[in-house]
Design a binder for these strands. Structure first.
Lengths: 212, 212, 212, 212
DNA sequence: GATGAATGAGTATTCATTCAT
DNA sequence: TATGAATGAATACTCATTCAT
């Protein structure tokens, strides 16, 4: 249950390294890889610029370290939601909730990843390693209902639901006008959560009617 | 019906301006606003760097010119799909098809927009102007079925479907492994299109059963 | 008496050339040689940029043309003040008045010249040709009173008075606070004129007492 | 008495910063703010261009650093000349000598300031802060003799004398022909100094005779 | 561990000038 | 005469990275 990034310490420890990682987390999440300079990170962390290189070798490696923390936390979150004996429908709802809970705790995560998918092919293998286990959970959850191939294969649902969850956050700033306010405000998020559960049910209902 | 960007020349004409616009289109679509330098654009277009400024005044204005072409084409595509007398279900399918057709013809468009949403707040008003009319189409299509407020309001479906369509393209490079090949290959895209139609029907079915 | 620059047409005539010259006059006077671009001049004149080069060959030559107009007008102004049969004191007052009248009509002139003295050695010969005849007037006016050599030679008085007149205008913007308002406002200028006459008298009085 | 700029190191220390400041001092004094590029400064100082920004943040800030050193030295020079118990006439002569001594030691100072007055309005407040205390000295020296208002107010004499002193240096290069040699050669300067003392006396004599 | 100094390559943008039409 | 297009060099400034101490 303890999937918070703050509580996990990957590679380098020590106060200095941690404060750099924390600063990098905040800045990269807000402005992406290219929008942030090493100087920015060092200043926000309150350390000497050269120390960033001493601890993380390069800006890209620092970015990877930030991503890695999220990756582990994200995977752990979905894993624990999946590993229950609950029936299918309930398991799906747990996955949706786990996904939303994780992002609500780590709001910068979707933007961070999105900024890499478009623009930094070098990071694609990294993201693929990240995505795969989560896809396996979805696939396992739908086994029996969803065929292995064709337009009802699990991968389509994985994409539909991931997109519906993630874009809630990445698109939030531009959706504000048609939402009549911040789509990430607590009430709006609760409503969106309700909708996503409804969506999962609607997809399951459709799948059950269609020939699996 | 003539919504292809290549066929529309809004901004300045002349071979040179066109080749700059074309080069900018390609590069921005691949690497985003910050990943591309004016030097890159000029080199790809085979023109002097200063000419980019002669024709487009600034890098940001050039980016806007590229976006504007897409914006007009995109809007026109959805508009003509919506303006039919077909019944609701059929109208929704037309919208999905128009959306997909447009992106298939302009594959860089989703990445272009996505790179702005995450990372360039300055362009958010521009995107909002773009999004709004398309949201109005969806809203109008669902009127009667979908309540004005709450978790079944039209805006949720607009987000679900837009995300499912757009992320098909923006996420394609990282989805390849779990797709067992390029998700944008013709066969894969045809399958995805079939799924998205199924998705629209499933959502409609759910809405019809739920209290609107 | 007709010493206005606007009425004199040196080298190239024609409406286009005149409007360029006029625009250059205004802009160079406000922002100096380096603060103004050929594009600025062309825009203010409402003509094509290339025409500036067609008529004036280069930016520097255009600047020279502007200066040349002032030079002729300035010389004519002092000349007519000097060529009277009035006694010495009155002749000096006429020179001071002519100097002030000219600058009041062509307020940009002192700044124009000052910006060249500091910063553009290439223009020094030009300015020297400009200065020399005016020095000769002063020298001739003081002949008999002022020795040819030493600390009471005419050149010192030429420098004193020129500086007192010209710096009134060039320093005006930074003198404003200690003047309690714009030193170039009509009332302030009238007072300064009165002072400069007093100064000329004081110098003459001193010279008369000292051994010439 | 220690008013030499070389001996004062206000801004950053260290050999590199000093050599940049020195190079900037020379170049700005010769060619003004706009006539000098950061590349020029770095080359003359023999350091990497980026180091100029490392130490001084921007070209304008570098210029300010150069000016600030002069400003402090200038003010100190006049202050110590004024703070004596000598009678009025002698105090005025001390001020003239202090002014001349200072500029002889810092010959680039007048050009530096002059280039700002004409052409860089952004620096006017800086110059005004510089000018004001010196004006106060003059005003205090003439108190009783010179009325507060009108054409004999202290500000006019401040302008007359400042102009006569400063223009000696700023105009030197174009005055050479009528001086029959360099006006800044030792003998010529000594003669000019003698004249300026004579000028101060002549103004005092005039003031004494006129109604104060 | 930590720091200040140093660097080379890169960024967007401007400019005076030229030239074909 | 007049113009739109084209160009090469320059400008202030930033950045990731290295290194001696």
């Amino acid at each position: 249950m303890q999937t918070s990034v703050q509580k996990m310490q990957s590679s380098p420890r020590g106060e200095t390294a941690t404060s750099i990682l924390q600063a990098a987390d905040e800045l990269f999440g807000e402005q992406g890889l290219e929008g942030v300079s090493v100087r920015d990170v060092a200043e926000r962390a309150g350390v000497n610029k050269a120390l960033v290189f001493y601890y993380f070798a390069s800006k890209e490696k620092l970015f990877e370290a930030v991503l890695e923390r999220y990756y582990q936390a994200h995977r752990a979150a979905l894993e624990s939601a999946f590993n229950t004996d609950a029936p299918l429908a309930q398991k799906l709802h747990s996955l949706v909730d786990a996904y939303l809970d994780f992002i609500e705790q780590h709001r910068r995560y979707p933007s961070l990843v999105q900024s890499l998918v478009v623009g930094s092919p070098a990071f694609h293998p990294f993201i693929q390693r990240n995505l795969e286990p989560m896809f396996r959970f979805t696939e396992a959850a739908l086994v029996g209902l969803s065929p292995e191939k064709g337009h009802l294969a699990a991968r389509h649902f994985f994409l539909d639901i991931s997109a519906a969850v993630i874009n809630t956050f990445t698109w939030a700033p531009v959706l504000a006008p048609m939402w009549g306010g911040d789509p990430l405000a607590p009430a709006a998020l609760a409503e969106r959560r309700q909708h996503l559960h409804w969506l999962a049910d609607a997809l399951l209902a459709g799948l059950t009617r269609s020939p699996g």
